[in-house]
Amino acid sequence: MAVFTAVSLDDLHQWIKQFPLGQAVGLEGISSGIDNSNFFLNTQHGTQSGPQSGHYVLTIFENLRFDQLPFYVNLMRHLAGRGIPVPAPVPNNDGELIVSLHGKPAIIVSRLNGSSQLAPQPVHCAEVGRMLARMHLAAQDFALQQPNLRGIDWWTATAPEVAPLLSEAEATLLRDEVAFQATFAASATYANLTRGPVHADLFRNNVMFEGERLSGCFDFYFAGIDTWLYDVAVTVNDWCVDLATGELDEARVRALLDAYHAVRPFTDDERDAWQPLLRAGALRFWLSRLYDLHLPRAAELLTPHDPTHFERILRERIAHPAPGLPTTVIT
């Protein structure tokens, strides 16, 4: 969520009339993130679709084309319709969810209540685990198909572009881990893992809380079809770590995994795959942050993330196995 494409209230004066929202009266760029242009949007009046009538988020997609967006936008609509607390896309007067703004695809979604919990405790991790399991189950009958575009194919293609820009130790780690993940992805254990739509980016700043109650999650623009366990691994690698060391906090790990398992029990194959997929989740974000740091795009507001954070996590997951997945259902 950065601002690559500048937008003003004057730009929206005619454009917003295609939506049943009234005139735009407030617009604020969101500087966090690195892939799309995002704005908090306030309008004179709202629809019944959002928890905060008149308060929305406008997103302009910088890399994704119109034909690539239906998966993400309709997944949010599907989940919102199943009671999962996610932003609900707002259709225009013709029923279209994706429209053009400054020649690029754009959408408006409802803005969630609450704020991010950046210092999570076990109670917050349990809320996240429970919601993630509910999300997986709610999405399993979603009709559209799209692979995780930042999965193993992307790692294999991108690592050779980044490796020459790294130190010898970093390049060796990157090549070795991509090779390890490619081997594991060809295994029978990996083939047996349960798959479906995943969020694939469920970090602390993509979840909202009101006190200790989870009020919503957002930013589905890395979603795709992948193993559900990969989604859990990505989530644990952010919510349950010591940010300074990359080490896992066992109490937070147990809270998140037990809450998830109580809703959607883990399988034996998932228990066997847990350690490799924790490494996969760390690799994915280390590599993408390396790419964004060394091969950046121009943006009006851009906040690049430090790749060394996920390098630490990857090295830690390789050196020290994480707490295992639960085996009995916790009620």
Rank of each mutant, 00 (worst) to 15 (best):
R65E: 13
F66N: 10
F66P: 05
F66W: 13
F66A: 13
D67K: 02
D67W: 07
Q68E: 15
Q68L: 00
Q68A: 07
Q68G: 05
Q68P: 06
Q68H: 04
Q68S: 02
Q68M: 11
L69T: 14
L69F: 13
L69P: 07
P70K: 02
P70C: 04
P70G: 10
P70R: 09
P70M: 03
P70V: 03
F71I: 01
F71K: 02
F71L: 07
Y72V: 03
Y72E: 14
Y72Q: 06
Y72F: 15
Y72L: 01
V73Q: 05
V73N: 01
N74R: 13
N74W: 11
N74K: 15
L75W: 01
L75C: 00
L75D: 06
L75I: 03
L75P: 00
M76H: 04
M76P: 08
R77I: 00
R77A: 10
R77S: 10
R77P: 01
R77H: 11
H78E: 12
H78K: 03
H78M: 03
H78Q: 02
L79C: 13
L79T: 05
A80K: 06
A80V: 09
A80I: 01
G81T: 12
G81S: 04
R82A: 07
R82M: 11
R82H: 15
R82G: 05
G83I: 08
G83K: 11
G83D: 10
I84L: 14
I84P: 03
I84M: 04
P85G: 08
P85Q: 11
P85H: 04
P85T: 09
V86S: 05
V86Y: 00
V86M: 09
P87M: 05
P87T: 07
P87C: 08
P87K: 07
P87N: 06
A88V: 04
A88R: 12
P89Q: 13
P89A: 09
P89W: 09
P89F: 08
V90H: 03
V90P: 01
V90N: 00
V90R: 01
V90Q: 08
P91E: 10
P91R: 11
P91K: 10
P91F: 12
P91G: 14
P91D: 10
P91N: 08
P91I: 02
N92D: 15
N92V: 14
N92F: 09
N92L: 10
N92E: 15
N92R: 09
N93Y: 07
N93E: 15
N93M: 07
N93P: 11
D94L: 05
D94A: 14
D94C: 04
D94S: 08
D94I: 00
G95D: 05
G95Q: 12
E96A: 15
E96G: 06
E96S: 04
L97I: 11
L97P: 02
L97N: 14
L97K: 12
I98L: 15
I98K: 13
I98R: 08
V99D: 12
V99T: 13
V99A: 07
S100C: 08
S100G: 09
S100E: 14
S100M: 05
S100N: 11
S100K: 02
